[in-house]
Amino acid sequence: MLWYIGKRLIQGLITVWFIATATFFAMHNVPGDPLLNERATTPTIRANLEAKYGLDQPVTTQYFIYLKNIVRGDFGISFAQENREVNDIIREHFPVSAILGVLAVIIAAVGGILWGSLTALYRNRLPDYLIMFLVILGISVPSFVIAAISQLGIVTLNNLAGTTVLPVAGWGTIYHMLVPALVLGLSTMAYLTRLMRSSMLEIVNSDFVRTAKSKGVPPARIFARHQLRNAVLPVITVLGPSIAAITTGGFVVEIVFAIPGLGRFFVEAVQQLDYTVIMGTTVFYGTFLVFMVILVDVIYGFIDPRVRMS
């Protein structure tokens, strides 16, 4: 197991290096640079800026300087927010995204597993139809629409109640995170519900469930031990990438609900061609994603005995 983890970690490092290198050169090959602004700069001012940021060096030199700094964990200073270090940006804003993301993932996973099992239990009956209809909605309606509608819902609710039941936007308390997390986790929840449902239906007809039933195992135990536990495996598999996707994909929700998460920086840096922030967030998220995938593989080993043996 240890050897296995070690091997996966080394693979992960190579992946991260590859991500960093590809991003670096792609970024430098895009027309334009972070120093361009609506207000044209004189050659003097431009030269001063280039010297300040080290952009007067050849790209390959910049690359090696960059790689050296990344290894030391220094991502440099943002071009767009000139007083802030990328490390500070990640340190201050990733926790926000992470808290929101973790909550969204938990809501999505718990909801997905529960709804999925419920639809499988009541297959082709009313709860099934109802939930599966909502699932289709959840998957197909884009998050910015859901975010905007739910925000309008909060305003209406507050107006009806005549007081602030839930905050419309902002960040900081328990009430601020509930709706955004739900919105953020909704499409994942819908996806997981469908996954759980089909997975359950497959298990229901499997030999070991039939055997358990004919042995006279109590239904609740069959459901919990034989069906649920086995059916949940595919859900766990996609959970890792889902965590990464949700934590990094909060851009829309963060903008709508005015949440100071890292997602904004991730997207806006590309538009601004903010080299250091692009590199910082991409490498950070890349590492995060790779780590999540490894983590899921390891967890898988604990849950599924067959994986452990091979």
Partner: peptide
């Protein structure tokens, strides 16, 4: 419980000064 714990953590990352 998780929401409660996360809310405590979130208190350190934002302002509830609304």
């Amino acid at each position: 419980v998780v929401v409660y714990l996360l809310a405590i953590a979130a208190g350190h990352t934002g302002s509830n000064g609304a």
